[in-house]
């Protein structure tokens, strides 16, 4: 299986030019296979969110390289990197970050609208299909503030899929939800993984999600402490 994401000798030091530099990642070598479903676990402060931000090119490593689809990203210009990110990676966070004054459908369309391309019939049909997939067909025209926590997170999941990304990076996607809704969201992510062959990398504290992943990576004190594949 080809590697879709690769980290090579990644180090991350915050406050490098200060008197108290803090190193949070140490020589991380890690790669992910296409269509795989991965979980990252670790205690608070272990460096896992920094790692995910670097994987998603939202943050830059102090040194080392990040390859997306075998493309080296460290020398890319800011707008090139933004384009690659917008086309290749979808993000899901613990908090949904939906725009409250827009409907679920409008929020889902947002990643496409950023690219300033016209919203065609096909694009609209895709947004509707994604909202159907996440089970929101009846509330897609509701303002996001009028939806439940589970519905808002489902909208965020549909939004992350709008640009047909090859990779979804999720940071505690169910951290804010009750256990029944967590189970439903997990089943949904698995369904997306199977249907679209999307690669998933999920940070989670929830053992019920982690144990169902194909691979578990544990980060401890900025290093890979454990890496097992089912």
């Amino acid at each position: 299986m080809p590697k879709i994401l690769e980290l090579k000798k990644i180090n991350k030091i915050y406050g490098e030019n200060t008197k108290v530099p803090t190193q949070v990642l140490f020589d991380i070598d890690l790669s992910f296979e296409e269509s795989s479903f991965n979980s990252i676990i670790g205690q608070s402060g272990s460096g896992k969110s920094t790692l995910l931000n670097i994987l998603g090119t939202l943050d830059k490593p102090s040194n080392g390289s990040v390859l997306i689809n075998q493309i080296e990203t460290s020398k890319m210009k800011k707008n090139q990197l933004s384009n690659l990110r917008n086309e290749t990676i979808g993000f899901i966070f613990q908090f949904h970050y939906l725009l409250p004054e827009f409907t679920a459908l409008e929020n889902v369309l947002m990643p496409y609208q950023i690219s300033k391309r016209p919203i065609t019939k096909e694009v609209l049909a895709r947004a509707n299909e994604l909202l159907d997939l996440v089970g929101l067909e009846k509330v897609k025209n509701n303002l996001s503030i009028n939806m439940s926590g589970g519905q808002q997170q489902r909208t965020a999941i549909a939004r992350s899929l709008m640009n047909q990304p090859k990779i979804i990076l999720a940071d505690e996607p169910t951290g804010n939800l009750d256990s029944d809704t967590t189970e439903q969201i997990y089943e949904l992510l698995r369904e997306i993984n199977k249907k679209y062959k999307t690669t998933f990398i999920i940070i989670t504290h929830d053992r019920h999600i982690a144990e169902k992943a194909d691979r578990i990576i544990e980060i401890k004190d900025g290093r890979i402490n454990l890496d097992i594949t089912k």
Partner: peptide, 10 residues
């Protein structure tokens, strides 16, 4: 038995 429990076994 459960592969997640390798984490605590370690």
């Amino acid at each position: 038995t459960n592969y997640y429990n390798i984490v605590v076994t370690k």
